[in-house]
Nucleic acid binder design. Structure first.
Lengths: 138, 138
DNA sequence: TTTACAATTGAGAAAGTTTCTCAATTAGGG
DNA sequence: CCCTAATTGAGAAACTTTCTCAATTGTAAA
């Protein structure tokens, strides 16, 4: 399974470096949106000396490979999390910032209708749901 | 109608200053997402000398008053547009960046079901649709 | 209309985020 | 085990956003 991921890199002529591994591992170990700085801190625990620029570059690469997704939170800087399988949307807990679950996409059904109705050929969309998970409500 | 808006400010103990008027007018005159810098440029045409910090502060105020909405586009900096009436979501043209239309919210219907199913009490969501408008397709 | 005061502004400094540059290093195909 | 192109670290640079403070200005009340 790590081998599959390795191949995804190699097929694109990209190297599967320790730094990229570390960034990916951080995302895998935390099912939550993480800011660049938090990712950088955690990566340095696994691989001391890793530079911030490398974290930026690794995340960019992971998004290109569709292994991670970039999201926008209200608090300014961008955050990242593991890419879900298939077309789904994250439900994020506003307290602990974890991605509780990815839900089926309700937009695909209606986008064709909307295209007809509005004259806009709808191609993509961005959807995030926010709430409070069971743990955080107690 | 400008009087209504004036009252919205006054009810909150806020002043309806020329700078805030200018920012609002720029949003009204352009049915599109505008970056802070483009807003600043256009505001200075109406009111030379207006500072960038004031544009930031005015937009923050307009969002608080629900007269404008802040959105996140891929290209980094935040953008703003006029707030739609009621709970609706923007359909944005990826070519001309105009907000073509606001569509009915398809999430409200399903959020209760999702809350039950996932155990997360869903409170808010963020949805933007992207496509290519008729004009830009020709 | 005038006055008084709290809210707001402009300017620039400061803080924070992201990208760029380049010499040194390294992964991985051959 | 080499060779080479891809990648990295470090710091500079660019860019976005917030903060500070003295000066100004709306507006409620006189």
């Amino acid at each position: 399974m790590s081998k599959d991921i390795k191949n995804i890199f190699h097929k694109q002529g990209l190297k599967f470096t320790p730094q990229r591994r570390a960034v990916l591992k951080v995302l895998q170990d935390t099912q939550a949106y993480l800011s660049i700085n938090r990712i950088h801190t955690k990566v340095k625990e696994l691989l001391p000396g890793t530079g911030l620029a490398t974290v930026y570059r690794s995340l960019e690469t992971l998004v290109e490979l569709e292994l991670a997704v970039k999201v926008h939170l209200e608090d300014g800087c961008h955050s990242y999390t593991l890419a879900p399988e298939g077309h789904r949307h994250p439900i994020v807990c506003t307290d602990c910032s974890r991605v509780i679950e990815y839900t089926e996409c309700p937009i695909q059904d209606i986008s064709k209708k909307l295209s007809k109705k509005t004259g806009v050929l709808i191609k993509t969309h961005f959807l995030q749901l926010f709430g409070k998970c069971e743990e955080c409500r107690n």
